[in-house]
């Protein structure tokens, strides 16, 4: 009986991870092909950050670390950025976001205003690290650039993050 339950549990968990991977690919596709349509003053929301923060708050720090790393890698590859920059900033972001994970209160965290607060902080951490590598060896002023694009980008991502509060994946609630 227990064996049967474990198999179903693993299968459900596997399906959820496949859904996360599909969501990441869909977001990457959207960002490269359609993001221009929702750009405001050249600033686009970073949907991958929303997904990584959401996964981290739902599944914990350990899973979040892999989500951040793989999500960042996908971004680096499709955007032809220097490979590792988005992966690094999203891994660090997921690690810090993981400290807000509360076992048994996952649903409450991602469906409350707390989620938006965490998302904004995560965006700021991501942008801080990402723009450090972006500005490196250029003549641009880091703080000017960060205040101009980093904060605006974080706010835009947080606003779009409101939609993530209403996401519900059907199936049993599974804890790792």
């Amino acid at each position: 009986m227990q064996y049967g339950y474990d198999r179903t549990r693993k299968k459900d968990l596997g399906i959820k991870y496949v859904l996360y991977a599909l969501a990441a690919l869909l977001i990457a596709f959207f960002h490269v092909v359609l993001s221009n349509l929702i750009a405001i003053g050249g600033i686009t929301p970073n949907l991958m950050i929303i997904l990584v923060v959401w996964i981290t708050l739902k599944r914990g720090q350990f899973v979040g670390l892999f989500a951040g790393f793989l999500g960042g890698m996908i971004y680096d590859i499709v955007t032809m950025d220097v490979i590792g920059t988005n992966a690094l900033s999203q891994t660090v972001m997921a690690f810090l976001t993981g400290f807000f994970y509360r076992e048994g209160k996952e649903e409450h965290t991602v469906k409350s205003m707390k989620f938006l607060g965490i998302l904004f902080l995560a965006c700021m951490v991501h942008n801080l690290i990402y723009y450090f590598f972006y500005i490196k060896l250029s003549d641009l002023s880091f703080w000017n650039f960060f205040f101009k694009y980093g904060i605006a980008g974080s706010l835009y991502t947080t606003v779009i993050g409101i939609f993530a509060m209403f996401i519900k994946i059907p199936g049993r609630q599974i804890k790792i």
Binding site: Q61, F62, L65, F66, G68, F69, G72, D76, I77, M80, D81, V82, I83, G84, T85, A87, L88, T91, V92, F95, G98, F133
Partner: peptide, 22 residues
């Protein structure tokens, strides 16, 4: 495990950055 994984992933990322562009 979280700290070890985090350290390993950061090392991988920094190595990839040092390798260069796609």
């Amino acid at each position: 495990k979280e700290l070890i994984t985090f350290t390993a992933l950061v090392i991988i990322c920094l190595s990839l950055i040092s390798i260069g562009n796609v």
